[in-house]
């Protein structure tokens, strides 16, 4: 990376269709300013986010991965986010165990009404990732 272009963390954000994706839309229509580092991918439910998605994003060079769903109790599919919480806890633990910075994986619950919270989650994530620098551990393209 040349010195002219400062490092900007690249985030892949898996957002559930019912809450977090709607929350990100609200942030947009409310004209809340937040960094453009996150590439959103809408999924039906956070419970459908396979650990493979997270590993794959990191393999393809993401600096951080965000998974965001409905608050506990609000899942459109009743309990999808409960499954996500358990499954992705294991992913978080495994990454940390292998020595990958745990800050690179983040989860949040953002409802359709929480545009401001979504913006804050992304803002915080970008700021926490910045000091870590580019993610080169799981990145297949590492020179």
């Amino acid at each position: 990376m040349s010195e002219q272009t400062p490092y900007e963390p690249r985030i892949v954000a898996f957002l559930c269709k019912w809450c977090s994706s709607a929350g990100s839309d609200l942030a947009g229509v409310s004209r809340i300013q937040y960094p453009a580092n996150a590439t959103p991918i809408t999924v039906a439910c956070s419970g459908g986010v396979s650990p493979q998605y997270i590993l794959s994003a990191l393999r393809k060079g993401a600096d951080g991965v965000l998974v965001s769903g409905c608050h506990i109790g609000d899942c459109h599919y009743m309990e999808g986010n409960m499954h996500a919480r358990r499954k992705l806890y294991l992913v978080k633990e495994l990454l940390e165990f292998a020595g990958v910075e745990p800050e690179r994986f983040r989860m949040s619950w953002v409802s359709a009404a929480e545009g401001a919270k979504f913006a804050q989650v992304v803002r915080d994530f970008v700021e926490d990732l910045r000091p870590l620098g580019p993610q080169d551990k799981l990145n297949a393209e590492r020179p």
């Binding site: 409960m82 919480r85 294991l90 989860m107």
Partner: peptide, 16 residues
């Protein structure tokens, strides 16, 4: 199965 089940008090402190 472990990942086909959950408990209400599963750890969630890591989630923002």
């Amino acid at each position: 199965a472990l990942v086909a089940s959950f408990r209400d008090d599963d750890p969630g402190q890591f989630i923002r």
